[in-house]
Design a binder for these strands. Sequence first.
RNA 1: GGCUGGGUAGCUCAGAUGGUUAGAGCGUUGGAUUCAUAAUCCAAAGGUCACGGGUUCGAUUCCCGUCCCCGCUACCA
Length: 677
Amino acid sequence: MKEFKRITVTAALPYANGPLHIGHLSGAYLPADIYVKYQRLRKRDIIFVCGSDEHGVAITIRAMKENLSPQQIVDKYHHLLKDTFQKMHIDFDIYYRTSSLLHHQTAQEFFKKFYDNHQLIEKETYQYFDTEKQIFLADRYINGTCPKCGYENAYGDQCEKCGTSLSPDELIRPKSALSNSVPIKLPTKHWYLPLNEYQAKITQYIDSHPEWKNNVLGQCRSWLNDGLQPRAITRDLDWGIPVPLKDATGKVLYVWFDAPIGYISATKALLPNDWQKYWQDPETKLIHFIGKDNIVFHCIIFPIMLMAHGDFILPDQVPANEFLNLEGNKISTSRNWAVWVHEYIHDFPDKIDVLRYVLTATLPENKDNDFTWKEFQQRNDSELADIYGNFVHRVTTLLHKYYDGHIPDNIDLQVIDIQALEDCKKAVQAMGNNIENFRFRDALAEMLKIARIGNKYLMDKEPWKTFKTNELQTQTTLYVAAQITACLALASQPFLPETYLKLKQILNLPDYDFQNFWSSNNTFEILPSHHQIDKPFILFEKIPDEIIEQQIQKLQQTPKSHVMLKPFKNNIAYEDFDKVDLRVGTITYAVKVPKADKLLQLTIHDGIKERTIVSGIAEHFQPEELLQKKVVFVANLEPRKLRGILSEGMLLTAEDSDGKLHLISPFGEPNNGSIVK
RNA sequence: GGCUGGGUAGCUCAGAUGGUUAGAGCGUUGGAUUCAUAAUCCAAAGGUCACGGGUUCGAUUCCCGUCCCCGCUACCA
């Protein structure tokens, strides 16, 4: 394996439109932090950069919702995120932000370099502009007549009827899907990064990393097999980084383009004079910690940007985790199904390490994993309190009881004593190997194993018995037990930073540099004979059932009390409402639409005849259970083809806060065709 | 529907480039022990390794097909 001089570690930039939840921690930040803490202890030259991702449409939408400016939104969440990371002891060397001037300059330099070297495709197109909404329309938001088959409701990018790929320009009689107004054509210029030109190089690059995780390689190959396409790197928007060209007012860099450059900007801010060697020296190892949703950006698109630029090294590892579920369901911000980290910190201010421990023990390294409060309690109680905390407590108590808190002599070392120390050493080494190979769960298990070794050792040697019969052996036993405890303390540093500090106090650990603890093969002596330790105290309290119950209840109640209801729409005239013809009908036939997950094709008797309605409810209802059900539908909606089937109307449904759909049906038995108003 | 990844003990997960008795932790049961936060230690029970075919002397591991779960994507008037 290649030896590197230094390491650059990035963790995915969190999006500054909401707080952090435990899924974020377990996806990227916690494993990254453990890795970095470990490497720092090994005295490796390493930097750890991150920051808030503050651009993009979602920010502007959030701003409108909260009635604040985009800048106010990102300020608010940037500080919350930064504070949360700090309290969880995720120790970035810098936590930066993409709204900073330096980042704007860095991203613009990237663009400018591509532009000046003619690496971008420049397309001035006349794009449709909705004068009513004052916005350029994405292809999808333009409807019109298909030039091939004459179908009247083709989209700007594709005709659903004949399946042809289209561009909006080909449409006859286009109209805006947002306002139904006729859009006018305005010239707009955009720049594209021709990803396709790098297909061969990026394929070669991916192939040169067979050591990457399966999920990462799979996603990449899937993308490469489909063939890469040029990708627009600019947008018409007013929140973002201005395109650094004269004739580009009102244009910003697309957020996917600027965000990963944020890693570089952050490094520049951290090391203004020295940043290059962390990004441009081939002897630097670049590692991106991310969640599985970010794979292609970090393995294909960003590397292409770096390749295209030419001065940069490429990522050497991209350890992407799968997702963490919560109590059996997906974590969802919109449904508020999440454990918010800042709330956890508020509820459990002295249990930061417990969350770090439990999340590390259940990292979704190879497949999705589930976080439950019960497991949280159980791991705290039986692993941290019983195995880890209690071991430390019994050793320190024995030392005080028998030797007034002094480490005794070790003049009677037997095979069993040496073996225990050797086993600890092995565990430490295995821990290091696992961390180097991004296996953090296994690494954590090795750490706990040290406490297990200690517990077993005490049981085997029974110093409470030998104290009365064999003074020399008791001394040796407690000497060895003290070393094991100190070993456990040092090994805990990457995982449990607060616990380490507590142990440091209890054991009165000197400010000695323990670097050789990680590397040497010798049996170690951390606490010399006659060393004085401090009084012990409880490291991990058990968590009572009530506390766990409270958290579970809080979780189950919040979706109902905290649902973000959409604001009500503006008032409309009665005449406008009256235009909608709502009727009662009976479902007489229902079948799944082939090759579509969400669509059901329904036949509805509307009182006069039968009509076909295609509805996106397949995930919520079985076709059979709908038969003979009375429903309410919109009878005068412009017919439209969906998946090649003409849909004449629309079923009314109510979507609850869980995203579940409920059909609207009449109370009573009105006959088909009855008017609903 | 297309494309990744996954489906291994009650639970959470490892693992095998195909080969004698498939592993860990938790949980359960039995025993030992008392220095310690009723903590600890030992032992046992528990698995047709999703299902059906194929290749092979031999497959849970490779190939094909089917079913199920997460994600991306298309379709949700």
